[in-house]
Design a protein around this nucleic acid. Sequence first.
DNA 1: CGGCAAATGTGCGGTACCGTACATTTGTCG
DNA 2: CGACAAATGTACGGTACCGCACATTTGCCG
Lengths: 238, 238
Amino acid sequence: MPDLTQSSVHNRLLAKLCPEDFDLLQRSLEPVTLNRGDVLITPHQPIEHVHFLEAGITSIIANTAGGRRIEIGLTGRDGLAGTPVLLGVDSTPHETFMQIGGSGLRIETERLRQAIRQSSSLHSLLLRYVQAFTIQTSHTALSNGSHRIEERLARWLLMCHDRVDGDDLALTHEFIALMLGVRRASVTEALNILEEREIIQANRGNVVVLDRLRLEETAGDSYGVPEAEYERLIGSFR
Amino acid sequence: MPDLTQSSVHNRLLAKLCPEDFDLLQRSLEPVTLNRGDVLITPHQPIEHVHFLEAGITSIIANTAGGRRIEIGLTGRDGLAGTPVLLGVDSTPHETFMQIGGSGLRIETERLRQAIRQSSSLHSLLLRYVQAFTIQTSHTALSNGSHRIEERLARWLLMCHDRVDGDDLALTHEFIALMLGVRRASVTEALNILEEREIIQANRGNVVVLDRLRLEETAGDSYGVPEAEYERLIGSFR
DNA sequence: CGGCAAATGTGCGGTACCGTACATTTGTCG
DNA sequence: CGACAAATGTACGGTACCGCACATTTGCCG
């Protein structure tokens, strides 16, 4: 494997580690390409690897026996896929898959376990990320319960935009609808409104953020709390 | 302080500790009475104590700048108030308060920090609880986004019922409405339907669970996943 | 026991969103 | 280039829930 240097890493967590902690992981990190749709964690199956994302976005999905599905959080290079491992748990009822393709550095679950046993500063940073992610999930719960679709859509686009280079988001209405747990037609309508206001530009399978500031205005108070908490606990997204 | 023995403790987490870990905490645990409305964690303020609940229920509430409030999880003797401490974080944007009065054993944050540094088996159990609680929050997000009020109400009553002795829940419609993030009138209506079916009996400021099985039927697939996960990770509620 | 606030019942118009269905556009691939 | 599927636009009636307002009941306290 070619040398992996900390300064060339895009993942915010890996970049934030002290050099000793990075060295502890470095040999075990394996670069992987992650295509849209790739399943990183299957419900109720042992988590084989933890993925530190370098590019792209994962969705974490909760589902019911009745087949209801909804996104409860997302992660890009701000974090990792496999938080249960950090809490000493081997599997979860949730699914994690690539929402927007990219790449990552993966580590075998058992090796990460060894590393966090050896370094409390490593464990500590990763647990702080778990806390930040928990706040994100909580605000998804809040938003699902008390915001209109337009606000929720704006929040969701902002969260994706935060985690991507540039302003293009390769997303279909159908997919967004699944994430938000609403009708596809409702998404179409809400996107059209945003497009009329020239806040976004929607092409087939693609959404371009034109005016981020006004997108934030549209999101209102549905956006911001988890992001501020991430900055406080981990540092800047970028 | 009179001796506190592990066998006399009702809290599920404390009861589950190995005797050595319990001894580690025992001297630092201080019994407290917790009245309805007592605030255990104030948003953005340092968490002074972690509370292991012996009786009663706490609500964890997310709120927005715009004043929106909604419950994102609840805890009784199945858990503790102060999960951020276990993740190495000193404060949170969420509020935690007593929803139903009771009692608990509290420990100073710093002392708990010392203890989890000393005992990895202690830390491990408490982190597994964090994971179980995370699943609860996730399913609150799911439920808020995809279930009707009647189902959400049923789920919520079941979650309270799980954490209380007997079948009485001291709750007003107004309060339930706040927790679910809906109109008070909607709660009144939904409760009346449940009462007509003789699933519950509602008196002023009080709800009695008459037929738990049919309450579970009413909740449908909104209830169950987090509870199963708690059992897998920690053990039985009771 | 009478008065008062808290809790509950109820009604009305409005709207956000649903389920469903179907037409139209757009990129892709033989 | 023509066919085909995927993606998007749009329309319809239906319903769950909202915001608001007001009446009624209930326990409590002076």
